[in-house]
Design a protein around this nucleic acid. Structure first.
Lengths: 249, 249
DNA sequence: CAAAAACAGTCATAATCAATCATAAAAAGC
DNA sequence: GCTTTTTATGATTGATTATGACTGTTTTTG
């Protein structure tokens, strides 16, 4: 039984039952307590489950927000890995912007730096930040139905009154020539402003976003550091223009 | 049976029945009295329930967060009745303000009027409105941990730029002499402004809020119409000052 | 008021934990 | 080829946590 096999077995069990017990896993996977413990602890560090006394339970956050088609285990793992790397860049006393979106939402669970201030336009993000008792400011404005992002002129004006050390953004397309793009012009305007208001901008994008172009331009490749998952794709062309951080899966 | 499993079982029971008995839990979960007692006391310290002699009842806050689709308990029915009456006052094309807070959250599920616009300072409210595809605007500002309400100077400024047909507010105290009061001065300031920005103001308050006074004054009795559940209390003194709508339980 | 039930607190036992070590298989280097 | 390094695993240790039984006290009930 390979490590990978056990891991995917555990994740599948969690998908069905919401909870797994170490004892049961020992029997089903025919391995020692130590091995199960190591498996659970590895999966926890990737944000794929939460350990509890006697086993583990699923980390609901991401699964709940993602649409059915996005719920593949591979997709979640990629997002968690990217989110973890992004969160590790946040240091004590930072004032950061976190854009609405699922990958950035996953970041919040990995935030450990003390005394940080977060500004966001994500309604779900604000809620999770409050749960974690992290100081949060929400932009005001119209709430978009599908993504629960706050957008519009009010939010843009609010955003312009803040200055950030770092901004963490999502995007729907990355293209060498057309830069970062996203379908909604309102969201694009917000992202663009966030980049200008921030000393450093990070674009979080999993494998599927590369070489894609959508409707509204956010900015050029060189305007942000890209955080992505490790891929076979050659990124040399992009690396000439900007820094790319690759998350281990 | 893992600790976590018992805990979620207990919370689920509470969601449905509003009350649980230690003896019943002992049988259903097949464990000792000591264990149940420890479980209840842990969950209480997390604020997820309130212990009572012989078991536990749900905390008010949790009750409302979950009351969205639940109905069984009598206590919940009272609050739902108030929320339902309040929602019935909202008519087509209205532009309304819905205050953050547990009582007003229940209102949203009863909203049926077409083409309404809702402004709110409740993060949970904004999320629920988006789910129902009701046009919603969120005030910008700091997110309060405990209630997930947006408060502070930014939200106050945002609020002043809107005008409403109707405003629906919660309060922690109603008193003939001291008027409407709430513990947090920031929230009080918002409520006060909402009243002035609105043609009609409604104060939602269940039986337990009467004759109570808390720290910050929102306004005098005559500044809002009160929506409450039917009670034995004599309200004659109040009815001389303002309109009181009583919800049938 | 008295009996019964529920309570908080303590204790010993059992299960689970983190941490370390030794072994064996796989991978890398020479 | 053989050795060295890396990786995965299971066994062992003492520490931590969870549990049920037991004590005497408080609350509820008839």
């Amino acid at each position: 039984m390979l490590t990978e096999e056990r891991h995917s077995f555990i994740l599948n069990q969690l998908k069905e039952n919401h909870i797994v017990k170490s004892q049961a896993l020992m029997n089903e996977l025919q391995c020692s307590e130590s091995t199960i413990r190591r498996d659970l602890s590895e999966l926890e560090s990737k944000g794929l489950l939460t350990r509890i006394h006697g086993g583990a339970r699923s980390t609901y956050q991401l699964e709940e927000e993602l649409s059915v088609s996005e719920k593949s285990s591979k997709n979640i793992q990629e997002k968690q890995a990217i989110a973890k790397l992004a969160a590790s860049l946040v240091k004590e006393n930072d004032v950061i912007y976190i854009d609405a979106g699922t990958t950035t939402l996953a970041m919040i669970n990995f935030l450990t730096a003390k005394n940080i201030t977060v500004v966001t336009n994500g309604v779900a993000h604000a809620s999770l930040l409050a749960d974690k008792e992290i100081q949060a400011f929400l932009l005001g404005g119209r709430v978009k139905y599908s993504t629960k992002a706050v957008i519009g002129t009010d939010s843009l004006r609010d955003l312009k009154s803040y200055q950030f050390n770092k901004a963490f953004l999502g995007t729907n397309g990355i293209h060498l020539e057309y830069g970062y793009t996203t379908p909604d012009p309102d969201e694009a305007a917000l992202k663009k402003t966030a980049i200008t208001q921030s000393a450093m901008a990070y674009m979080l994008a999993d494998d599927s976003k590369w070489e894609k172009v959508t409707f509204s331009k956010v900015g050029d490749i060189e305007e942000a550091t890209i955080i992505t998952n490790r891929t076979d794709r050659s990124l040399t062309n992009y690396q000439e223009k900007t820094t790319i951080l690759e998350a281990e899966q």
